[in-house]
């Protein structure tokens, strides 16, 4: 559990961090470190340089901007969990944040780090996908916005270029009804399967750990917009998913859980 040797540099601004990243194609961004460091300790990731953006002062915030809430990438899970603005405007995010890992994880991990890691088994990416959030990235050629639906590309792979940094996440308000069904064996564990459901003018459903990336439960959403009942929609919940088997669950059991949890989440929406 000792990583390979690497250089460490601490950036004091986003621009400086981008310059550091551009100087070394094997460099990686370090924020809370809760996704990256475990991979490095197992030597599954061996970046030549870590660019620590953790001390950049103006990347931790939650603020209302029109019909969106902008969340700085360095905002800790705990701050998302306890933000009064989010509790009022995007309550699903507070709920999801409060169930990530354990208190020490929630005090260190960041929403940007979790999102940029792009893990299909993580809670935030699926929630942001269900919300139709927008990711704001900054790189050498400037700033761009990426829709959540375009952001998660593959297993631990996102639309971010190696020299780009995720700086902000913009989430729409208006999803006043929400449900989060996280099925795991211990409170601190990753979801075996998780379901995020939000309802505003329409109902969106996101899946945790039902494939290599976070997923939208498209079949469910389509059935619902066509007027199907909760039971009818939930019955097809696993359509279009590609869960894998591991020591916690077989593929079939994950598909079954997806149907049960979607039913429960939709019933919770009322």
């Amino acid at each position: 559990m000792y990583p390979s040797s690497f250089d460490y540099r601490r950036a004091s601004s986003v621009q400086e961090a981008i310059a550091m990243l551009s100087s070394d194609e094997d460099a990686k961004v370090l924020a809370g470190g809760h996704s990256l460091i475990p991979l490095m300790k197992l030597r599954l990731a061996s970046p030549s340089m870590l660019v620590d953006i953790g001390r950049i002062s103006n990347l931790s915030y939650v603020r209302k901007e029109g019909s969106q809430v902008a969340i700085g990438a360095l905002t800790r899970h705990r701050d998302v969990e306890t933000s009064e603005l989010l509790a009022h405007e995007v309550p699903i995010l507070s709920k999801v944040a409060g169930q990530i890992g354990d208190p020490s994880v929630r005090h260190v991990g960041t929403i940007g780090g979790s999102t940029a890691h792009g893990d299909g088994a993580a809670d935030f990416p699926a929630a942001l996908l269900a919300l139709g959030a927008t990711m704001v990235a900054e790189g050498p050629s400037g700033r761009r916005e990426i829709a959540a639906s375009e952001f998660f590309k593959g297993f631990l792979e996102t639309a971010l270029a190696p020299d780009e940094i995720l700086t902000e996440i913009r989430v729409p308000t208006g999803f006043t009804k929400y449900a989060f069904q996280k099925f795991n064996r211990r409170a601190q564990d990753w979801a075996i399967v998780g379901v995020v459901a939000v309802r505003g003018e329409r109902t969106n459903v996101g899946f945790i750990n039902m494939g290599p990336t976070p997923l939208r439960a498209t079949a469910v959403e389509e059935r619902l917009s066509a007027g199907a009942s909760v039971e009818e929609a939930a019955a097809v919940a696993d359509e279009g998913t590609s869960p894998s088997a591991d020591i916690n669950a077989s593929v079939e059991y994950r598909r079954h859980l997806a149907r049960v949890l979607v039913k429960r989440a939709l019933s919770e929406l009322g």
């Binding site: 354990d102 064996r185 211990r186 409170a187 601190q188 564990d189 020591i247």
Partner: peptide
């Protein structure tokens, strides 16, 4: 309810880390 050392067919321990070997906590 939680713990078991799991091996694959070649005799490799599959849950060698405490992320995979489920020691319960007070929360459970």
């Amino acid at each position: 309810l939680y713990e078991e050392a799991l091996y694959d067919a070649s005799g490799q321990l599959l849950n060698a880390s405490l992320a995979d070997y489920l020691v319960p906590s007070a929360a459970e």
